[in-house]
Design a protein around this nucleic acid. Structure first.
Length: 126
RNA sequence: UGAGUCGGCCAGGCGGUCGCGUCGGUGAGCAAUCACCGCCGAGGAACGUCCGGGCUCCACAGGGCGCAGUGGUGGCUAACGGCCACCCGGGGUGACCCGCGGGACAGUGCCACAGAAAACAGACCGCCAAGGCGAACCGCCGGCCCUCGGGCCGGUAGGCGUCAGGGCAAGGGUGAAACGGUGGUGUAAGAGACCACCAGCGGCCCCGGUGACGGGGUCGGCUUGGUAAACCCCACUGGGAGCAAGCUCAGACAGUGUGCGUCCGAGGGCUGCCCGCCCGAGCACACGGGUAGAGCGCUGGAGGCAGUCGGCAACGGCUGUCGUAGAUGGAUGACCGUCGCCGCGCCGCUGGUAACGGCGGCGCGGAACAGAACCCGGCGUAUCGGCCGACUCAUCCA
C-alpha cells in the first residue's frame, strides 16, 4: 500500500487521468501508463492509481499483480514531478510477468509519458 | 510385510531490506492531519451463493385459491434440505460403502428397440376334438397280373393336405420387464380348474421395540407389471425484503404543465390472485433543476481451547482459561538469503544371487487450490503434498 497522500482514490480522478485531453498515455504488452497534470493539483505530491480488470485473472492473481505494480511504483515516486496523477493499467499478460519484467516496462513507459507531458505543459504555458 | 476401509490434523520455518491497515500511546497542529513507538492483521475451503438462522426495516385481520420446499423412524440443534443412531433395500470375503427411501386397487399419461402381445387382456408359431372338401403320397381293404422283388386298377379320410368356425395358453421365441415356481391330479388338449410344498400379497392374533420394523402363528382369494427425477394425491413447513438492510448528521435546488381525487374517496398496506379488513389527502405522468458526502451498523461470536459429568453417538451441562482481521480504488505485501520437504539425474560407501533398497554429497526442477467485505451453522465444489489414529483381509513368525 502506498502512503495515503500518494493514493488516487476517487472515481472522478481516475476518469480524469485516463481521459484528460492534456494527458499522456503510453503502453506496452504488459501495462499501460496514463499521466495527467491539473492546475488544481499543482504543487501537491504525485498520486498513483491502479486498474486491474477481471480479464487479468482471479482475485488472487489480480491482487498479486496490483501489489507488485504498487511496490515498483513506490520505488519510483521520486521521479514523478509534483502535481502529477498517474494511472497504471495492467494488461492480461501482466499476470504471468515477473517483477523485474514489470519494472523494466514501467521504467520505459514512465520516462516516455513524463517527457511527453513535459513538452505539452511547456507548450501550453507559452 | 502387502492390499484396503474409516476418521482427524497441517497448509512450509527463520532472518534481512523496503512498505501498508485498524487500534492504543507520545508529540506537533485551531483543525483536517502528520511523525515516532507498540499490539494485532486472510482460509480450510475466506470460494460457489445451494439451504438454515441471527440482525435490520416493513406488515401482523382473517378466509379461500395458488406457489415453493421437504419426504423411512427416533434423536440432536437457534434452525435446516445439516448431523448422529437405527430400520429397510442393494454391493463387498471383510473393515465398510451406496440409496431424490411417502402413495402406482383416486384418477390421467408414458413404457423406445425387439416382440404375436407392454396392462387388459389378447393369441404369431403352436396344441386339441368334431365337421366339410381332397385319393398326389404313406397306411389299410378288395380285385387282376407277375420274371415272386413287385406292378396295375378300384375303394377307404387312419396319417396327411386344405377350408371355416370352436376349445386352450403348457411349450417356442423377444425384451429391463410377459399375469407366481416345482411336482402331481385332471383333460380332447389344457389351465390355480384342483392338490402338496415354496415364494409373494392381504386380514387377524401373539411376542420384541419409543418407532421405522422384526420374529412367530392362523385364515383368505389363489397372484393384482414398471414409471411419481410425469402430471397428480397425502402429510408437514414457509409473511416480505435484504448491510446498497437500516439509523443519524451534513449539504444542494426551482419549479411548471396536464389528468384523477378529498367521504359519490384518488392512491396505498395485508408482498402471486380473489373476497374481506385497515390507512387515507393527496397521487400519477411529462418537461426542467439538484444531490449522489460523512459517521454509526462493524465485530464478543448459537466463540476457541482444556478438564470433568451425562449420552452408543450427534450433542448437552458444569468448571477453568483465552481475547485473536475490520479494509472501502479496498490493508494483511514486494524483493532477497538460508534451512527443511517432495521428484528426477549423477557420484561415493553399503545390504541382497537378483528385483530392489539404506546412508552421505552435488546438480536441476517442484511446492497446490485459492483473497475476508454484516455475522454464524451446514452443504457442495477446488486442492501440491505431508503427518497421526482406529479397524479389515491375506501371508509369515511365536
Amino acid at each position: 500500500m502506498l502512503p495515503a497522500q500518494h493514493r488516487l482514490r476517487q472515481s472522478a480522478d481516475f476518469a480524469a487521468a485516463v481521459r484528460a485531453t492534456g494527458g499522456a498515455r503510453s503502453g506496452s504488452r504488459l501495462i499501460v501508463v496514463h499521466a495527467n497534470q491539473t492546475d488544481a493539483r499543482a504543487g501537491h505530491p504525485p498520486r498513483v492509481g491502479f486498474v486491474v480488470s477481471k480479464a487479468v485473472g482471479s482475485a488472487v492473481v489480480r491482487n498479486r499483480t496490483k501489489r507488485r505494480l504498487r511496490a515498483l511504483a513506490h520505488q519510483r515516486l521520486d521521479r514523478i514531478p509534483l502535481g502529477t496523477d498517474l494511472v497504471i493499467r495492467a494488461n492480461p499478460p501482466a499476470a504471468q510477468a515477473s517483477s523485474p519484467e514489470l519494472g523494466a516496462d514501467l521504467d520505459a513507459l514512465l520516462a516516455r509519458v513524463l517527457r511527453r507531458l513535459g513538452t505539452a505543459v511547456a507548450g501550453g504555458a507559452r
